[in-house]
């Protein structure tokens, strides 16, 4: 079993979001970078669990980014995974990133490709689906549970107002979210061994982008809270009905 886990770097969940260059670039001053939580907590940890139950499993990590991404990929290797591949280019639009990952995937002969359900910065939820189409593979998105059964994946996925269980033959691309696994903290042994794990850097292939960011905006600030006394709850309901007109 050979698994490819896609890893993205994102600003920490508490990072203050600001922009520079006339609101065309994300201001990374003082920003702490982390592994995209969906990639780390769910896809990577589930891949590690699969390796724990079958030691012959090989886990490779892939990321698209410049050398600034190396600390993130080392942290992912500290959690688990055998080796990592970094495509040496600044990530651009989803199509560009998915195309770079698909080139890596074509070389590797993977049985399983995991992505997070989305990144917490661009919220595209697109890489998994694009990758599957580029590789002509089936795609199961928004998985909440993942099991292997012989040559099949048994995946529980989100549907509106519930979940459904589906089966699909490998190889397959799966996007993971909460439920698939539980967050882990890297231990000292993992951190030490991560330094010795191979991190291969490959150059990007020439691909066009389909979209570009023209500018960013911050949402308008709220006018301020209107407080109602806890002894006058009926007044709150009246305000919601007559002033806000939402009930």
């Amino acid at each position: 079993m050979k698994i490819l886990v896609c890893i993205s770097k994102t600003p920490d969940t508490t990072a203050k979001i600001a922009f520079t260059d006339n609101n065309t670039k994300f201001d990374s001053t003082g920003v702490q970078w982390i592994i995209n939580p969906y990639d780390e907590w769910y896809s990577l940890v589930r891949a590690i669990e699969l390796k724990e139950s079958d030691a012959s499993t090989v886990i490779q990590l892939v990321t698209v980014g410049s050398s600034e991404t190396d600390p993130i990929i080392r942290k992912a290797l500290a959690l688990g995974g055998d080796e990592a591949i970094r495509v040496n280019t600044d990530s651009q639009d989803s199509f560009y990133i998915a195309s770079q990952i698909s080139e890596v995937a074509k070389q590797g002969g993977y049985d399983l490709i995991f992505t997070g359900k989305e990144t917490i910065d661009y919220n595209g939820s697109s890489i998994g689906g694009m990758l599957a189409e580029l590789l002509n593979l089936p795609y199961v998105s928004l998985a909440t549970k993942f099991e292997l059964s012989g040559n099949k994946a048994v995946v529980t996925r989100e549907i509106d107002g519930g979940e459904e269980v589906c089966e699909v033959e490998l190889p397959v691309v799966v996007s993971c979210q909460k439920g698939v696994a539980e967050q882990r903290i890297p231990n000292m042994r993992g951190i030490m061994s991560a330094r010795a794990k191979p991190l291969k850097v490959v150059e990007p292939s020439g691909v066009n982008t389909l979209t570009a960011i023209s500018s960013f905006e911050l949402p308008p600030a709220k006018a301020g809270v209107k407080l109602v006394s806890p002894d006058n709850v009926e007044e709150l309901i009246r305000l919601l009905k007559e002033e806000a007109k939402v009930i």
């Binding site: 697109s126 689906g129 189409e133 389909l210």
Partner: peptide, 20 residues
């Protein structure tokens, strides 16, 4: 849930830029 699964694939297939 359905749009997130299909739109990215269609974007690749039609080489059409996607805004999700």
């Amino acid at each position: 849930v359905d749009g997130k699964a299909i739109a990215p694939r269609l974007s690749v297939r039609l080489k059409a830029g996607l805004v999700s």
